[in-house]
Simulated assay, not measured.
Amino acid sequence: VRLDDEIDISRGDMICRPHNAPTVSQDIEAMVCWMDETRPLQVGGRYTIKHTTRTARTIVRGLYYRLDINTLHRDETASELRLNEIGRVRLRTTVPLLADEYRRNRTTGGFIIIDEATNRTVAAGMIVDTA
């Protein structure tokens, strides 16, 4: 890529069309699949999020529901996600992310969540909405 102007860009910065720019937000609603056998996802939990080439800290602000994969019933009383459970969550990141809805762009709409204590990947997620 060759640019006409000198622009200060670095790893993790994004070049996009003016009318096709991702949303810049610290608040993300996503569907996540929990993959940790030892500790469940809980509201208030603090993790690291890896989105495209950026890494940031995140906190789980809310768990809207857990999805029963057999009946597709939404359990809105759920307070945690355990191994292989899927749920819709609200995350707040420490830095703004350049994100799209997963259905629009898989690259900027997907992420993983890493446990800060063990450095293990504990969840994979798809962005549903950025607020």
Rank of each mutant, 00 (worst) to 15 (best):
G62W: 11
G62S: 15
G62P: 09
G62F: 12
L63H: 02
Y64W: 10
Y64I: 09
Y64D: 13
Y65A: 08
L67I: 05
D68F: 12
D68Y: 07
D68H: 10
I69Y: 09
I69E: 11
N70D: 15
T71C: 14
L72S: 12
L72T: 08
L72W: 11
H73A: 14
H73L: 13
H73C: 10
H73G: 02
H73P: 07
D75G: 03
D75E: 05
D75M: 00
D75V: 00
E76Y: 14
E76D: 12
T77H: 14
T77K: 12
A78Y: 06
A78E: 07
A78Q: 01
S79G: 11
S79P: 00
S79A: 06
E80H: 11
E80D: 14
L81C: 15
R82W: 14
R82S: 14
R82T: 11
L83S: 06
L83E: 02
N84Y: 14
N84E: 13
E85S: 08
E85I: 12
I86P: 00
I86W: 05
I86V: 03
I86M: 01
I86F: 07
G87N: 00
R88C: 07
R88T: 10
V89C: 08
V89K: 01
V89F: 09
V89I: 15
V89Y: 02
V89E: 08
L91C: 09
L91I: 06
R92V: 04
R92C: 04
T93D: 01
T93K: 02
T93S: 03
T94Q: 04
T94P: 00
V95P: 04
P96M: 01
L97N: 06
L97A: 00
L97C: 00
L98W: 01
L98Q: 04
A99D: 06
D100K: 12
D100T: 13
E101K: 03
R103E: 06
R103L: 03
R103F: 04
R104D: 15
R104T: 14
R104W: 09
N105C: 08
R106E: 11
R106A: 10
T107V: 01
T107M: 07
T108A: 08
G109N: 05
G110D: 06
G110Q: 07
G110K: 00
F111G: 04
F111T: 02
I112K: 05
I112N: 07
I113R: 03
I113Q: 08
I114M: 13
